[in-house]
Amino acid sequence: MKQGSILAETRHELLDDIAAHTATVLSEHGIDAALAEQAGHAVADHLATQWRGATLYIPSDYRHQLTKRDLQILSEFNGRNHHSLARKWGLTPSSIYKLLKRTQDRKFERDQGKLDLGDGLA
C-alpha cells in the first residue's frame, strides 16, 4: 500500500471516529440520535476544513487527560516520593520528575499572572 493511501485511510478513520464519538456522547446526553449523528458529522467536517493541509501528531498523553492526572500527581507529591508515584501511575521516575517540573512551572507562570491556561491549576 502506498504512503498516500495509508495516510488517506488513517485520516478518514480519524474523522469517522470523531463523528461517531461525538454522536455517541450527544446521544448519551439525551440528544435525538439522528440529530446527534448530524452534529457528529458537522464536527468532523469542521475539523477537516479548519485543519486541512496540516500534519498533526497526537501524543498518547494529550493535554486534557494529562492535566487531571498531573494535578492529582502534584497533590500526592511530598517532595521525596517520586518512585512510589511512578509505580502507582505506571510511569518512570524520570517521567515523574519531568511531569512535576512541567506542572510546577505552569503553576508558577499562572500564579505570576503571565498565563491563564484554564487548566485548573490553582
Rank of each mutant, 00 (worst) to 15 (best):
G120A: 08
K88W: 00
Q50G: 13
D111E: 08
K88G: 02
A54T: 08
H83P: 01
L85K: 06
D32K: 10
E37N: 06
K88E: 04
M1G: 15
R63K: 10
S27W: 00
I18V: 15
S75F: 11
L14T: 09
R110N: 05
K101V: 13
A54L: 08
R80A: 11
K101Q: 11
A23R: 01
E9Q: 13
I18E: 08
Q50Y: 02
Q112C: 03
D105N: 09
A34Y: 01
G53Q: 03
T55L: 07
K107H: 15
A54C: 05
D61C: 04
L35N: 10
Q3E: 14
K68N: 06
S94H: 09
D111W: 04
T22H: 08
I73T: 02
E76Y: 14
I96G: 01
G113P: 05
A42W: 02
S60L: 08
Q72K: 08
G118I: 08
Y62R: 10
A23K: 03
H83K: 14
A34D: 07
Q65C: 08
L15A: 07
A54D: 06
S5D: 15
L85Q: 05
K2C: 05
D119H: 12
D116S: 04
Q104G: 02
Q112R: 06
G30C: 02
D105T: 14
H21V: 11
H12T: 10
V25C: 06
V25G: 01
Q38K: 11
L91R: 14
D105G: 00
L56W: 03
D17T: 14
L56G: 00
A122R: 13
V43H: 03
R87L: 04
A42N: 13
L121M: 05
R11K: 12
A39F: 02
A33P: 06
S95F: 09
G113D: 00
Y97L: 04
S75V: 05
A42G: 14
A33Y: 03
L74I: 09
G4T: 11
L121W: 07
I73A: 03
Y62G: 11
T103G: 04
K107P: 01
K68V: 09
R52T: 10
S84R: 15
A19C: 05
A8M: 13
T22S: 15
L7A: 07
D119C: 03
E13T: 10
A39M: 07
I31L: 08
L71I: 14
I73Q: 04
Q38M: 11
T92E: 04
L121V: 05
L14D: 03
R69Y: 12
Y97M: 02
G79Q: 07
R87P: 00
Q72P: 01
K101P: 00
L121P: 00
T55G: 06
G40A: 12
S94L: 04
L74S: 09
R80S: 11
L121S: 02
H82N: 06
L26G: 04
G79T: 09
W89E: 01
R52P: 00
S27D: 10
Q38H: 12
A54F: 08
